[in-house]
Design a binder for these strands. Structure first.
Length: 297
DNA sequence: GCGTCCAGGTCTACC
DNA sequence: GGTAGACCTGGACGC
């Protein structure tokens, strides 16, 4: 079954797919040659949906599934795609700022700025936890193990495991087999609180509130510090925080200070004029070379 | 092949 | 409020 989803301009499939590392982590399966990715998700405990998505002419997304979807499953797939590609977000003031300065001309020409999400905040948050205090390779190992060992299975494909599944795991298993290491108790506690309803991710995601309020709510969850919460806020449509990590600090230093380390407050001062978009301009600035190198990471 | 050291965020205890 | 140390793993390095 094939169907199209209209996208609001400016939009670029590739710029969104390569906006950060998510597409490199299962259950995303990228085919860079043919410019599509496969993705599998479980919208509820009884179902599992796999689809292939490509960008066509950047005026719509083409979604392909094996076999026909029920109307309800089609709706859930469409909702997931809208969330993943941030199709409901208004980027007009971001592009207005980008158009005003010559150095951001490339953002306009690549229609860059949208950051790819997973189908659920749960999956985004667990993956973000897996990026903390380790190399990207270890992040891939952790998420790969979670999906392969605990995900719901459909043929050769697996979805990201539900909170209930992880909440039922033994801590030693998560530490040693999944390679979560010392993060295991954080993941276990988070999964348990989500599965038991003590943390309502839907409410968290759809709450009316400020960036600061959401920041405080997410920081209250053990294991999620400044870097991970600031990065998560970017996936939730709040771009005022920088989300420093060792990699983006180095990229900034290389680009703006001949490689000499720069204090966080100086980085913040550099992007201050972009106000609520400061964090996104920071991320765009340190990843500019990805776009110009045709997304060769 | 083995042992050692280091990088990578977050939490906790302490000042 | 700021700082130091512990947490765990993979990879780099020296032997």
């Amino acid at each position: 079954m094939n169907f199209k989803i209209a996208v609001p301009p400016p939009f670029s499939f590739l710029s969104t797919v390569y906006s950060h590392g998510w597409v490199d982590l299962p259950p995303f399966q990228l085919n860079s040659e043919e410019q599509y990715f496969d993705y599998t998700f479980s919208p509820d405990e009884n179902s599992i949906i796999s689809f292939r998505i490509s960008g066509g002419d950047n005026s719509s997304l083409l979604v392909q599934t094996e076999g026909k979807l029920t109307a309800a499953a089609g709706k859930k797939t469409e909702h997931a795609v809208i969330c993943m590609f941030r199709l409901n977000e208004d980027y007009s003031s971001f592009y207005r700022l980008a158009r005003a300065e010559k150095k951001w001309k490339w953002i306009i020409s690549y229609s860059a700025g949208r950051m790819l999400r997973c189908a659920s905040l749960w999956e985004d948050m667990v993956k973000m936890l897996c990026t903390t205090n380790c190399t990207w390779n270890l992040t891939k190992i952790m998420t790969g193990n979670l999906v392969a060992e605990l995900g719901k299975e459909k043929g050769s494909k697996h979805s990201f495991p539900a909170p209930e599944i992880i909440a039922g795991c033994d801590e030693q298993y998560l530490r040693q087999r999944i390679k979560m290491g010392y993060r295991a108790p954080y993941l276990l506690e988070f999964a348990d609180r989500v599965a038991s309803g003590k943390i309502d991710l839907n409410q968290l995601e759809n709450r009316e509130g400020t960036s600061d309020e959401l920041y405080k709510a997410l920081r209250a969850i053990k294991g999620f510090g400044d870097y991970s919460v600031s990065s998560l806020l970017k996936l939730l449509g709040f771009y005022d925080r920088m989300g420093y990590d060792s990699w983006n600090r180095i990229q900034f230093a290389k680009k703006h200070n001949s490689g000499t380390a720069v204090e966080d407050k100086e980085i913040a001062a550099y992007y201050k004029r972009y106000d609520s978009w400061a964090g996104l301009f920071f991320w765009m600035d340190v990843t500019e070379h990805w776009y110009k190198n045709n997304f060769k990471w």
